[in-house]
């Protein structure tokens, strides 16, 4: 009755709400945890102590070099056709403006195609993207590539409609990438409301002038750590089931949802296994990644360091899409491994969470999946996730302890059973 014991302890027993309470303590104490910030390093040190005090094994920090970007003060003011202070959030890795800012006319587009059609009008202007929200993977391209595409046609800055499924005038930040050979221009996200208003104004033939000021600065890479803890396997200790979430966040809100919840249900999985006195045949390894938001920097360096042992990894798991009510897991691997995972998920019938979907989500575990290691991510109710993602609204207020209990139970049952089965998951 091991699966039932895990579920009972996590959802109904003395461990219920523990991951929520632990997360609240960390994020209320430390705040958001941007790559390169003192907050992130404080969080890593606190987690190192927490994992040791929890009695987990082989608790250690693995050094990583990570980007250091700071946003500084920033503002955007529409001056024409009327004065209007706009809420903005500069995008990670963006350069700043000159100290006096950039004042320029706006060119509004709804797509990259429209930008290319209007290329002759773009020189010297601030490109405002008012792209519709289709889905995160589709629409995020405007945040990531918006500055580069605008700079290619001679724009002096870009302002991008936040990649958000719902808005109450909330700007959403995130990472953006420059391209070699293309001038770097300042870039920030504006609210859905302002993007739509500016687009309406432009469609009426209004001339729009915006004054943008950003103090953003990029600094040399800095030292950080992936945080690791284990329950060592009893029979095949060199073989691993990796359970993970990322400890860093953006510098707004508390990073409670992205990805505090994922990191803390991963820790909770090991705590639950330990509380029940269980020791699986192979090692369950917790990794709390650093600098995921900058493109899986900590995970990339972990993979480079450990890929020589990839044949010893039975399953890599990551929760980085919220810890709301789970519906199942997403799985990447062979059909035979998928059939086994369906059997594993059938153990979660008491919670009615048994589905195995395709297409694992997880920047940090993709390196392993590409190398042929089976991967799994938590699949949950995403209906509100992208309303809060990368915004000031990502706080403990959006978290639900009961849903975290259930997510932790799913995570613990899957990781324990796969780690304890006699054979590793088949790969081809």
């Amino acid at each position: 009755d091991i699966a039932k014991a895990i579920i009972d302890l996590a959802v109904y027993g003395k461990s219920q709400n523990r991951s929520y309470d632990r997360l609240g303590l960390l994020v209320d104490t430390v705040g958001p945890r941007l790559s390169g910030s003192k907050n992130l390093e404080n969080a890593i040190q606190i987690m190192y102590q927490n994992l040791q005090q929890n009695g987990l094994e082989n608790v250690h920090l693995e050094p990583v070099k990570i980007p250091h970007w700071e946003r500084g003060e920033e503002s955007a003011m529409m001056l024409v056709p009327r004065v209007h202070k706009m809420a903005i959030l500069g995008l990670g890795s963006s350069i700043g403006t000159p100290p006096e800012g950039i004042m320029a006319e706006a060119l509004v587009v709804t797509s990259f195609d429209e930008l290319r059609r209007k290329a002759p009008e773009a020189r010297g202007k601030i490109v405002v993207y008012n792209q519709p929200y289709i889905s995160y993977p589709v629409t995020v391209q405007y945040r990531v590539r918006g500055a580069v595409e605008a700079a290619k046609v001679g724009a002096v800055a870009s302002l991008i409609r936040s990649v958000a499924s719902f808005s109450i005038y909330s700007p959403h930040t995130g990472f953006q990438e420059y391209q070699d050979g293309v001038p770097k221009i300042p870039t920030a996200c504006i609210t859905v409301e302002d993007a739509e208003m500016i687009a309406r104004m432009a469609s009426r033939g209004n001339r729009i002038v915006i004054h943008l000021k950003m103090d953003a600065k990029n600094y040399p890479d800095t030292s950080s750590f992936n945080t690791v803890a284990e329950i060592t396997g009893s029979k095949y200790p060199e073989q691993v089931v990796l359970v993970s979430g990322h400890l860093d966040s953006w510098d707004v809100g508390q990073g409670a949802m992205d990805d505090g919840g994922g990191a803390f249900i991963s820790w909770e999985a090991l705590s639950l296994i330990k509380d029940l006195g269980l020791r699986p045949k192979r090692t369950v390894r917790l990794v709390l990644w650093t600098a995921e938001e900058q493109g899986g920097i900590g995970a990339s360096q972990y993979f480079q360091l450990h890929k020589v042992n990839s044949s010893n990894y039975s399953l890599v798991m990551e929760s980085d899409s919220g810890t709301f009510l789970p519906t199942g897991i997403q799985f990447s691997g062979s059909e035979k491994a998928r059939a086994i995972m369906k059997e594993v998920m059938s153990l979660l019938k008491p919670l009615n969470i048994t589905q195995v979907f395709s297409g694992t989500e997880g920047t940090d575990i993709n390196f392993w999946i590409q190398a042929g290691v089976p991967g799994a991510s938590l699949c949950d109710d995403l209906s509100t996730y992208f309303a809060f993602h990368h915004s000031h609204g990502d706080t403990m207020t959006v978290m639900d302890p009961k849903k975290m209990n259930i997510a932790a139970a799913v995570w613990a049952v899957v990781s324990y059973v796969v780690a304890d089965m006699e054979e590793m998951l088949p790969r081809t």
């Binding site: 009755d1 073989q239 035979k336 059939a339 594993v344 153990l347 324990y416 089965m421 590793m424």
Partner: peptide, 24 residues
């Protein structure tokens, strides 16, 4: 011991199913 198998037979899969069911 092979650390992971590239393939499993129907008979082996039945044993794995039974093994997993024992956790339920």
């Amino acid at each position: 011991k092979a650390i992971f198998k590239d393939d499993i037979s129907q008979e082996t899969f039945q044993k794995i199913k039974e093994e997993i069911a024992s956790y339920g």
